[in-house]
Design a protein around this nucleic acid. Structure first.
Lengths: 158, 158
DNA sequence: GTTGAAACGCCTTATAC
DNA sequence: GTATAAGGCGTTTCAAC
């Protein structure tokens, strides 16, 4: 699927304002409402737009601290990996989990209230996950920025 | 601001389906439409709901590979940090940037099409950012999961 | 908290160009 | 791509309970 400038404009707007009305969106994209509506539907059914979500405020929910944790397991047996992955997904403080190349097996992003809270999560939850041999925690001091907006790569442009 | 079970139900739904109609949401939350509408407005104005966004498909956009990069700068002078932060935010492939404690100064998450593409980003863009002394790249093999849904902490429950 | 009503805007589909 | 029309649905506000 190729995307032209208008598609990009639509995607850019919706990535920032997911609940724009179609008429507002049409105006911002410089399109008639019907044309805009058709394009959005196409973008949705083609899978370019995956879904719409509400983003909650980490601050307002008292989850100010992000910690990255490198996880090394006892071994790389298939069952060990599956057991860990299943268990870690059930931990609500873990926002993201990647299987990694290199030293550690997994990298996870953990969201907690403060350092105290992390101590609890680390000791009572993470270190008890199946197969975990070692945890290396890296504290973030400050989030410089975070994008939800994904750039449209050149090779998809019209 | 305290949140009761119904608020949590609303937040959970909206974090997964950000464009639910108010009437649909009301039904799922077990509320009348007007009561539901009032609660959502309150959650929005109080800042618990930060914003609504469309999530694009990384796959459909051909951005399959996530790379984490630990960035070490020449020094920690204020100007050095500011210059780097300003420049890195202008790189669209960088989705997130944290100032870190510990060995490296920054941790960034980079989204690219493939390893080739990363090679280009690494050599032509990242290593040219102001103040960069060392880059340590960690490739992800697979995203195990990623949440946009944030749990409501116990201490905020009614 | 609930229901119901009313006004308005938007969506959605369908026209035709 | 544009414009327009029509019906139905959803939102938003209000009043009353």
């Amino acid at each position: 699927m190729r995307l032209d400038d208008v598609d990009v404009a639509i995607l850019t707007e919706l990535q920032e304002h997911g609940r724009l009305t179609n008429s507002e969106l049409a105006e911002r994209a410089g399109l008639s409402a019907s044309a805009c509506h058709r394009r959005v539907k196409t973008l949705e059914t083609s899978g370019v737009i995956d879904r719409y979500v509400a983003i909650l405020s980490e601050k307002a929910l008292g989850r100010g601290i992000t910690v990255y944790v490198q996880v090394t397991l006892d071994n790389q047996k298939r069952e060990t990996l599956v057991a860990f992955e299943t268990a870690v997904e059930a931990v609500p403080e873990v926002m993201e989990c990647y299987l990694m190349s290199g030293d550690a097996d997994y990298l996870i992003r953990v969201l907690v209230r403060d350092a105290n809270d992390y101590e609890h999560v680390h000791r009572e939850i993470l270190s008890g996950l199946p197969g975990v041999a070692r945890l290396v925690s890296s504290f973030t001091i400050r989030r410089v920025f975070s994008r939800t907006t994904m750039p449209v790569p050149e090779e998809l442009r019209v």
